[in-house]
């Protein structure tokens, strides 16, 4: 770990100002500290936001407002979340361990880095860690890597479960910029694909601070989060599916799907949802949805199995959702 300066932010503006000048924001630190110990990242300055008033879960006109510093444990245990957004509670509890969830925050979870083995091993090339050096995961062991949205420069996956559920819930994020202005952004617009700049993972600008996540009013639909992984807990998703679905008169009236473990970002596609709306659920429909999801899927060798696994998991989740949504 490289020596660094430590600042404690007195206000969100204070944190933004420091971050605009190059400081790295730290909240729970469950991922950042590991990255620093391995010198995957070596910030000169950390600005600690944990004393800021960015906690709390409250109903607002826009929906449920979740402060960026709400821990994963508190969010998963929140009564409103469990009642109205069960897909989120389930996704949170499917992630990490109790100890980590006690420290990890809502904002930090969104911005956690990939668990690509090679990203963490500073003796191997990695375009995300060291732009231009190459990608050791391509041609290496890539069981946990992406089949969608990857590039020749990076095939890493985004590891979050929480973000997948939030994406299916069509969450918005609230951001305070370096100038003190606040804006909201659909979570779907936060992440960018690696292309030839895998070191750039979001649209956030230097000095941007995520202050809250806003969940639109409850969908009232059937909600499912299914995570498939190599052991029963404490493992990242090989494939995960978040599904929000509702039926009316036997036809799909509402559908929102999001996926984890497949891509460099929490994955969703509006077209997937649209192709189900107004349709009668059927094997053929679900096969078409899976075909569409996986049309451009590309395996890297050790992760080829994710393509059939994603198909099987998606179809099973859709069947389960329809079954549960029946009146």
């Amino acid at each position: 770990m490289r020596p660094f300066d430590y600042l404690r932010a007195a206000s969100p503006d204070d944190a933004s100002a420091a971050a605009a000048q190059g400081a790295t924001i730290i909240a729970g630190g469950t991922n950042l500290l590991d990255l620093m110990k391995h010198e995957v990242v070596a910030p000169d300055t950390l600005v600690d936001i944990t004393r800021l008033d960015l906690g709390g879960i409250e109903q607002t006109d826009q929906g449920l407002r979740i402060g960026a510093l709400v821990t994963n444990s508190d969010l998963a245990a929140d009564r409103t979340v469990r009642r109205d957004y069960p897909v989120l509670a389930r996704a949170l509890l499917a992630g990490a361990s109790g100890q980590l969830r006690n420290k990890a925050t809502t904002g930090g979870n969104l911005l956690q880095r990939t668990r690509c083995y090679y990203f963490y091993d500073t003796s191997t090339p990695c375009n995300k860690r060291d732009p231009g050096s190459g990608c050791a995961a391509i041609g290496g062991f890539n069981r946990i890597h992406a089949i969608l949205g990857a590039s020749n420069h990076c095939i890493a996956t985004h590891p979050s479960d929480m973000a997948v559920a939030m994406l299916a819930l069509r969450a918005l994020i609230e951001i305070t910029g370096a100038g003190g202005d606040t804006r909201t952004l659909p979570l779907d617009d936060l992440y960018v694909l690696p292309g030839d700049r895998p070191d750039r993972e979001t649209v956030l600008n230097p000095g941007d601070l995520i202050t809250a996540v806003i969940l639109p009013p409850p969908a009232g639909a059937t909600q499912i989060y299914r995570k498939v992984r190599d052991r029963a807990s404490y493992a990242f998703a090989l494939v995960s599916v978040a599904c929000v679905l509702d039926l009316q008169d036997g036809k799909i009236a509402q559908a929102s799907l999001a996926f984890g473990g497949l891509a460099p970002r929490p994955w969703s596609a509006k077209a997937l949802n649209d192709m189900m709306l107004g349709e009668t659920p059927s094997d053929a429909l679900f096969e078409r949805v899976a075909d569409h999801l996986l049309a451009k899927a590309k395996g890297q060798g050790s992760n080829d199995f994710k393509i059939p696994l994603a198909r099987r998991t998606l179809i099973a989740v859709l069947h389960e959702a329809v079954e549960r949504a029946q009146p």
Binding site: R115, Y117, Y118, D121, A136, G139, G140, F141, R143, I144, D230, R231, A232, S233, Y234, A235
Partner: peptide, 24 residues
């Protein structure tokens, strides 16, 4: 897991070297 190119151990921590955990 050994890397196919230089034999180095790829999953060298308890997050990716999957021992059975309580839930298993």
């Amino acid at each position: 897991v050994h890397d196919p190119r230089d034999g180095h151990i790829v999953n060298h921590d308890l997050a990716e070297y999957h021992l059975a955990v309580n839930a298993d």
